[in-house]
Every structure is written in C-alpha cells, then in structure tokens.
C-alpha cells in the first residue's frame, strides 16, 4: 500500500478510492451517458468512476464545475483557484489543495502565495486583495458558514465587484462540494 499524504503540498498525489470504481465494461447506459461528459482525451479517473455510481448527479457536475472555474469575465482564473484552495485548506482536502495550488502557481508564476497559505492558513500575509479573498473564502467554508454584510463589504473595499464576488462564492463553495467527495470517498497517496 502506498503512503497516505497528510501534509499540504503542490505535488499532486494519486487518489485511492475507498469504494469500487464503476467498471467501464459493465457500466449501465446511464453511467456511460454520464461518463461521456468527461473529457474524452484523458483516461477516466478512478474518482469520476466512483462518482459514476450516481450518474444523474455526475452528468450535470462536469458542466457546472468547468463553467465555475473557466467561464469568461468576472473573477480571474487565478483568483478562482485561490478560493478553491482556501476551501480545500479548511476542509483539509490534500488532493484538491495540491491540484489547485499547482494551477494557481502555473497561472501566476508565483509560488510564494500558496506556500504562505499552506504554512499560515487564514493568517497568511498576502497583498490586500488576495488577503480579502482568502479571509472571505475561509470564513465561507467554515460550519456554519461565516458571511455577513461586513465580509461582503471587505471584498468591495478590496475592489471586487458583484460578479467577482459571485464568482468567488461559486468557486469556493464548489470546492466545499468537491472536498466533501474527494476527502471522504478516498484518500491521497504518494504518486508512483
């Protein structure tokens, strides 16, 4: 058995499921249909094959996830990744945090921000706009979520408009969703 990864890292681990992934050869028509929505140029991951046990949800999920992370305008790609990492940090989803910290680094060419967040969490010292985004996303990811008029006001003060606040909310909460699947239905192990 490969070693389970328990510390935040930007090196993307493998994901080992606790449940049996759907066997493509024996998939039902509904499962095949849902799996069509996933990118055809890559091998279907074990994660997606586990989710294929519930094809009705999986079918919509890919389009929603891609839209929230990639639709044009509004919040920048990198800042959406920042929201995703903040949620993954709170929920301690090592796998999601690694994937999205790595994407953030690729988009910005700046490793310092993610390093700072992995070490200091919500208290990370970042520029004012990044700090406002991080604080908001961390509070929103807690249970019960911490969001009040002053939290929204802080984002506005940091220069975010309504569309950017909505985009940040969607990216952060989407990862609350993904973390709850990834971090419970399997675990990150050292990549071979």
């Amino acid at each position: 058995m490969s070693r389970v990864i328990r510390k935040f890292t930007t090196r993307v681990p493998q994901w080992r499921p606790h449940l049996t992934p759907v066997d493509l050869d024996n998939a039902t028509p509904a499962q095949r249909e849902a799996l069509k929505e996933t990118p055809s140029n890559t091998k279907v991951s074990d994660y997606v094959l586990v989710l294929a046990h519930d094809p009705e949800s999986l079918r919509i999920r890919t389009a929603l996830f891609n839209g929230i992370m990639y639709d044009p305008d509004g919040l920048s790609r990198a800042e959406r990744e920042l929201g995703a990492v903040a949620a993954s940090f709170v929920n301690r989803c090592i796998y999601c945090a690694a994937v999205h910290a790595q994407r953030y680094n690729q988009l910005t060419g700046d490793d310092a921000v993610m390093q700072e967040i992995f070490f200091h969490g919500e208290k990370a010292r970042l520029d004012p706009r990044q700090q406002a985004i991080l604080r908001f996303a961390v509070g929103l990811s807690e249970c019960p979520p911490k969001v009040g008029a002053d939290d929204i006001a802080s984002l506005r003060e940091a220069g975010l408009d309504e569309l950017e606040i909505l985009d940040l909310t969607l990216a952060t909460t989407l990862f609350g969703w993904a973390n709850r699947l990834m971090h419970t239905l399997g675990e990150p192990v050292a990549a071979r």
Binding site: L140, V147, I165
Partner: peptide, 8 residues
C-alpha cells in the same frame, strides 16, 4: 453557502 452569500 451560495444561498448564505446571496442572501447577504
């Protein structure tokens, strides 16, 4: 959580 933000 989306509802919490939109409500505010």
């Amino acid at each position: 959580r989306v509802a919490a933000v939109l409500a505010v």
